[in-house]
């Protein structure tokens, strides 16, 4: 994983609550055996019209949303299945951060392990961000704050180990493997019990 330290972008707003993983990447595309190339399928059934052209009503198709790497989403983004294809698809589409007042647990876990910042902000800040699409934000992972255009800050908290891994581009499997002795010890004790 590449280190993720700072993200600077305008925001695009997807105000719907409960945007589920089936909307992010419909199940019929889960027959893939790789992690790559899912961006073109991201939000497939929402993003395109039946004739294959762009759906102008899809929030990320709006001209002002083009190129935005930060999405401000309605409450409970990422609910539903455990498919990691959802963060893979979002990252491949070009989304690097999702800001929300509440993010579904499994999605948030999966996102952070792939370098997609899934950030929970307070309800008041969330309301402000929803009401102000297109603002330029700078997300500082080290400092755990978001800088607003007027210089104001929104602070957030990431799970400390996830943050460490993001900042250093460390993957968590490497850390688990370093704990081999503890794991072997646990297994011996369990067998003896």
């Amino acid at each position: 994983m590449k280190p993720v330290t700072r993200i600077h972008s305008r925001t695009a707003v997807m105000a719907d609550e409960n945007i589920d993983t089936d909307r992010i990447i419909p199940a019929r595309f889960l027959t893939t055996t790789t992690r790559t190339g899912l961006g073109k399928l991201c939000f497939n059934d929402w993003r395109y019209l039946p004739d294959g052209s762009d759906n102008p009503a899809f929030p990320l198709n709006k001209p002002e949303a083009k190129g935005c790497a930060i999405v401000v989403a309605g409450r409970n983004f990422g609910c539903g299945s455990s498919r990691e294809h959802a963060p893979w698809a979002l990252l491949d589409y070009g989304i690097q951060a999702v800001l929300c007042s509440e993010i579904a647990d499994i999605f948030r876990n999966n996102a952070l392990k792939n370098g997609l910042l899934a950030i929970v902000v307070s309800s008041a800040e969330h309301q402000w961000l929803l009401a102000n699409p297109g603002v330029e934000l700078s997300i500082d992972v080290q400092g755990q704050y978001i800088v607003l255009p007027d210089g104001g800050r929104i602070s957030f908290t990431l799970e400390p180990f996830a943050r460490h891994c993001l900042l250093n581009g460390v993957d968590q499997l490497g850390y688990l493997l370093q704990n081999e002795k503890l794991i072997a010890h646990y297994e011996q004790q369990e067998q003896a019990a």
Partner: peptide, 10 residues
Amino acid sequence: FGIGTTEVGH
């Protein structure tokens, strides 16, 4: 509980 594919690997 359910996990993502990275954790499946873990």
